[in-house]
């Protein structure tokens, strides 16, 4: 019998939106063979207790991610330039999300 160590289906990342207008947040990942199966599985695994009103599923291989080596060049330069941070503005009353 032929052996195949990786019998698992394709990996997908799941993003859920808690309520209309809110940002989608990464909820976790799952296995599925195509987008419809990924969407149904995402509903069952990550949204079965009213956690979401919308779901995105994205093949994990489609995500381009920064690596730990990028950390210095990518993120350090922002730290010492206070003028880049919008710290001097007041958030108007009643705004819940920016």
């Amino acid at each position: 019998m032929a052996t195949n160590n990786d019998t698992q289906l394709k990996l997908w990342e799941v993003f859920t939106q808690e309520k209309a207008g809110a940002s989608f947040e990464h909820a976790g990942s799952l296995r599925a063979s195509d987008n419809e199966m990924a969407l149904l599985n995402a509903r069952d695994v990550y949204a079965r207790r009213n956690e979401a009103v919308n779901i995105w599923v994205v093949p994990s291989e489609s995500i381009t991610a920064s690596t730990p080596e990028d950390q210095g060049p990518f993120f350090d330069p922002a730290n010492d330039k206070a003028y880049r941070h919008p710290n001097f503005y007041k958030t108007p009353a009643g705004i819940k999300q920016i």
Binding site: Q8, L9, L30, R31, A32, L40, N41, D44, V45, R48
Partner: peptide, 11 residues
């Protein structure tokens, strides 16, 4: 057969 389907069936 897979974890995701296990959860779906029990749901």
């Amino acid at each position: 057969p897979i974890l995701e389907e296990d959860i779906a069936l029990t749901n």
